[in-house]
Every structure is written in structure tokens, then in C-alpha cells.
Amino acid sequence: MYLIGELAKQCNVTSDTLRFYEKNGLLVPSGRSSSGYRLYNDDNLAQIRFILKAKQLGLALDEIQELLAIRLEATKHSCAEVKAITQSKLNIIDEKIAQLTDIRLALKSINDACCGHVDEDASHCSILSALAELEEKKD
């Protein structure tokens, strides 16, 4: 059994992080000590590691909570349910990558068009002009 500080140290997170997960329903202590301290077991340790790995992959807390619920009752769920969650996240990431690619291309285009001369004052800067034109087209 672990106290909250010991579990936090094992997972390389803060006690506040564990309290946050508990408050948001991602973590349930396995019990309380006679003094009222939260107690955690190896299942809780594995659960925190699962949460941290899912966060590394960009999953939101609600998605992680859904995956944890499926994991706890795995025999009542299918792999298709789990895959639907990750596929949805992949679709969102693909959309963001496409948007960022478009932004990068537009920014590179106006950056490349700028002479960048130190001698020339910014009133003639093609980047400022391009941004102003984009704003006018937006309105």
C-alpha cells in the first residue's frame, strides 16, 4: 500500500496531480488508513501509469476516463469501442496537422517574400503588407 506522496513519487507526478485525477474520477484510492490518509495499491499504480501514457498520446481526460471504464470491465466491451476512441483522436490530429501545414505554407510564403534588409524601414515590409491584405480580405 502507498500513501499519496509515495504513489506520486513512484509515478513521477505530484500529489496534487493524483488529487486532481481523483477529483475527476480517474483514480479511486483503494482505501483509507486508520488516520484517514488515502491508501493506494499496485492496481492504482498501474492505473496512474496508464493515465500518464494516454496523456502522452494526447488523449483528453474524458477520453482517458472512457478508456479506463472500458478497461475495468473489458469483458463487457469490444476492441472496436476502444479503436473508435483512438480513431476519433487520430482524425482530430490529422485535421490539426492539415491546418498547421496550411498555416506553415502561408507563413513561409510571406516570410520568403520579405527581403529582410536591415537598412529598409518596416513601413515597406512585405510581411506587414501581406498580413494587412489578409485582414482586409477577412473583413
Rank of each mutant, 00 (worst) to 15 (best):
Y37G: 02
R38F: 05
R38C: 05
R38L: 05
R38M: 00
L39F: 09
N41W: 09
N41R: 09
D42G: 01
D42F: 00
D42E: 12
D43K: 12
N44I: 02
L45G: 01
L45C: 01
L45I: 02
L45Y: 07
A46Y: 13
A46R: 12
A46L: 12
A46C: 10
A46Q: 12
Q47N: 06
Q47R: 15
Q47M: 10
Q47K: 14
Q47D: 01
I48D: 03
I48Q: 01
I48A: 01
I48N: 05
R49M: 09
R49H: 09
F50T: 04
F50A: 00
I51F: 05
I51M: 05
I51E: 07
L52S: 00
K53I: 07
K53V: 00
A54F: 01
K55W: 06
K55C: 03
Q56M: 13
Q56V: 01
Q56E: 15
L57R: 07
L57F: 10
L57T: 07
G58F: 09
G58Q: 04
G58T: 02
L59M: 14
A60Q: 15
A60V: 11
L61D: 05
L61M: 08
D62L: 11
D62S: 14
D62Y: 14
D62I: 11
E63H: 13
I64N: 05
I64A: 01
I64P: 01
Q65A: 13
Q65S: 11
Q65P: 02
E66P: 06
E66I: 03
E66M: 12
L67D: 08
L68K: 12
L68S: 08
A69Y: 11
A69Q: 13
R71F: 06
L72C: 10
L72N: 12
E73T: 03
E73C: 04
E73N: 11
E73A: 08
A74M: 10
A74P: 02
A74Q: 15
T75K: 10
T75M: 03
K76F: 05
K76P: 02
K76I: 04
H77S: 03
H77I: 02
S78P: 01
S78N: 04
C79E: 02
C79M: 10
C79N: 04
A80G: 02
A80D: 09
E81K: 03
E81H: 07
V82G: 04
V82D: 02
V82Y: 08
K83I: 14
K83F: 12
A84S: 13
I85C: 09
I85F: 10
I85R: 09
T86F: 14
Q87C: 06
S88R: 15
K89W: 10
K89N: 00
K89T: 00
N91R: 11
N91S: 13
I92Y: 14
I92E: 13
I92Q: 14
I92T: 15
I93H: 08
D94M: 13
D94K: 15
D94Y: 14
D94H: 15
D94R: 15
E95C: 05
E95L: 06
K96R: 14
K96G: 02
K96F: 02
K96E: 08
I97E: 01
I97Q: 03
I97G: 03
A98N: 08
A98M: 03
A98W: 04
A98V: 06
A98I: 04
A98H: 06
Q99L: 12
Q99H: 08
Q99M: 08
Q99C: 03
L100I: 00
D102Y: 10
D102P: 06
D102Q: 14
I103H: 03
I103R: 11
I103P: 00
I103F: 14
R104Y: 12
